[in-house]
Design a binder for these strands. Sequence first.
RNA 1: GCUCGGAUGGUGGAAUGGUAGACACGCAAGACUUAAAAUCUUGUGACCAUAACGGUUGUGCGGGUUCAAGUCCCGCUCCGAGUACCA
Length: 932
Amino acid sequence: MDYNFREIEKKWQQYWIDHQTYKVTEDASKQKYYVLDMFPYPSGAGLHVGHPLGYIASDIFSRYKRSQGFNVLHPMGYDAYGLPAEQYAIQTGQHPAITTRNNIARYREQLDKIGFSFDWSREVQTCDPAYYKWTQWAFIKMFHSYYCYDAQQARPIDELVDVFSREGSGRLNVACTEELNFSAEEWKAKSEVEKQQTLMNYRIAYLGDTMVNWCAALGTVLANDEVSEGLSIRGGYPVEQKKMRQWCLRVSAYAQRLLDGLDAVEWTDSLKETQRNWIGRSIGAEMQFKTQNGVSFDIFTTRADTIFGVTFMVLAPESELVQALTTGAQRAEVEAYLEKTKKKTERERIADKSVSGVFSGSYAIHPFTSEQIPIWISDYVLAGYGTGAIMAVPAHDSRDYAFARHFNLSIIPLIEGCDVSEESFDAKEGIMVNSGFLNGLTVKEAIPRAIDKIEDLGFGRRKVNYRLRDAIFSRQRYWGEPFPVYYKEGIPHTLPIDRLPLELPEVSKFLPTETGEPPLGHAMNWAWDEENETVVSTSLIDRKTVFPLELNTMPGFAGSSAYYLRYMDPHNDRGLVSEKADQYWRNVDLYVGGTEHATGHLIYSRFWNKFLHDLGVSAEEEPFKKLVNQGMIQGRSNFVYRIKNTNTFVSLNLKDQYDVTPIHVDVNIVSNDVLDMEAFKKWNPEYKTAEFILEDGKYLCGWAVEKMSKSMFNVVNPDDIVEKYGADTLRLYEMFLGPLEQSKPWDTNGIDGVHRFLRRLWNLFFDGDRLSVSDGEASKDELKSLHKLIKKVTSDIETFSFNTSVSAFMICANELTQLKCGNRSVLSDLLVCIAPFAPHIAEELWHLIGNQTSVCDAKWPAYNEEYLKEASFPYAISFNGKSRYVLEFPAEATQQEIEMAVLSHPNSAKWLDGKTPKKVIIVPKKIVNVVV
RNA sequence: GCUCGGAUGGUGGAAUGGUAGACACGCAAGACUUAAAAUCUUGUGACCAUAACGGUUGUGCGGGUUCAAGUCCCGCUCCGAGUACCA
């Protein structure tokens, strides 16, 4: 009987739907296990073979855990808000909701073909109002919260109002944008508007005037993780710095907890390191410098020990101090410099390594020596880090050194024997000199000593600084979650929670308005009637109770920050997740996804979860216990070589004899690097009359590893693989390709081997057309082969080494074929082991040999060491570490017996060369090494 | 620049410090076939050698530890990823 994978896969996929095989409910009698994939953004291009890699791995793990008796939650959904659908809408007028719906349908169809064990009844889509209701809800909660450092948690903002009216802002230890100082009386004297403005300084979701990454081409601001090297990640457009009033999330308040939490999770070291760098904790001192004209300002330094080497100060051009410290004589020059730097984009500023700056005219007073120190302005100092001002120590900082050299400022070396004639000495080692009370100390001793002294004298204090900045949460886009916010006298107010969701309105255009407002400015019905608590027409804004709604929308990461919680209880309309569901599922045990989210999604969702944890909504502090990063599957492009100015193509190994141009050719008309010439002629009208110069009667194509993309013609669609070989082959082959974490090119050259294995497995159950399975005792050899497999596969799955499991299946199937194994119990256990990898064929054979229930419900077999015991073991016999021959010894042979046998063996004579051995090392069951 | 990975046959890749190259692709030879495909069997790191046995060498480079190193340590080279005027 033939292995008809098309029929089998269709049949069982339907069976699983009909029997709701993968539906899961909370079951207190079973231990839970939560396996999650990073949900996809449904792009118009559909899935390519790279996408399912992680999904297959997590599916194997889910099925394995399930057959071990765990209650496994394995959901899937869509991150459905995003730029491409909106860009497409701008170009074509097609509503993004329609594009998104179509794309989702296409994704679903593709995913279904691969046979995943997702519980689709729990599907979520971030653009669904029933879902984003809870995104908006969380935002409102953040708006009404502040972060208390003493309690190390988010607290209701009303508490803060109480404190202000009792004792003012005096002794607060809370996260804020700016340190404010006011008394209870001053608070009470504030107008309502002033009070609201003050509270903004403390809210976790706040409106702030911050420097943002503005992308003019996309018409929106972007978060730091959406920008790389001054270009937008999506589209690669230039990004400039601009001061704008935007919604922000006070992620920085959670910096320390985000850092500490990393110790508690099982992630790869490199990913933890990436997050640590992104959070960027550095310990140092904040110091106050006075100037002669009475203004004083703070700087941050990690090198307080170098205080005696300060020869100038530098302000960031954007710093507010620039105005206060620029003297009349220098004003014109400073203005010109500010104008020049403002024009530069971030990218240009990075690319431009030349030193630039301008003297402000003012001098700071050195706190220890009382010397006058010139204050400069330069764009190498960043406004967003520390205080936007630095003390420059040219001898021990390469940037300060370059600046000092360029402007001929003095350089004072502070470390014994260091040479600063050519470059600065940046290392934190050596003995201090020229440094007053620090002389004679090592750098490591001097740093804390200097800070102590600074604190004693009241010039400054110890300070921990984080690179992590607050997340900018507004986007000037249409296709995103609307903010549940309206403005009354310019002050933002949140909608009542029971009026959520605030649904995204229809707009006539997806572009910004003529007045430069975001696309929601086109909405006809986008005002809030406070009295009736409904959305009403914008034209009613003149009425007393009707106010304009927020025109910005939320960024992409808003919807993906708590989706794992929603899967626990996706249809709940009274809460994001019920306490019962949350207490049962708690957090994600295994999260599978790409590293590209290391500094975006994985920071934001950890922050979001910590906030919800503070609210008591999420049971766990960390959302993702274990995280596995699957590697990227790259494309393997094929090339044909056209002889210049002709329509003749020459095969790979002959191309050097001609002057040729390599041309990308669709990988789908190439098989094992051999071109299908007829298909090539049809592929593009230009090649209809193509002629070929062949080698061995074939046209061989060249190849290269590149990103998988349409323009390289190297996109491989999983549907085509499923059609040709079946889903089980695709699943096994993607795993067989190499280690899960590693990036690798897609290459179909080896897929036949995996497909052959499945056919051999199939044939193992048949004798001609007859099923040949019998009951009875399994033979020793059969049990040994089976249990070797169970042991190997069990440990492989636990360590995500799926590629070697596939090899183990092949070996076992071959051994059982050799043994003509037809034993029902052996074959049953074999199927249970294979089922996570190739569920369709396993299910079919499982039923054929007489089982009534699904193989998904079968219990994972335990291996028995008894069967693996060997009667004898091969020993590698080595002389001086070089292995020479192999001998078998019974398991119970003593070391003495083995030594005797080896030394008296005829093969040994040659290596002993008449000498007596100095030492014989015997590693039981492995090796005998004779040292001569 | 800094941080983290990696380098093993023609190819993808296996190897708790203990017979390097499992498994698969590819290739070669053979069987079946009028033929091809499919399938099955055998061989396959390189070099030397043979009637046959066999030997030498070999995990990016140079050292070290060890009876024994792809694996551990030190110093490089190259490749990949992340990140960066972060004071």
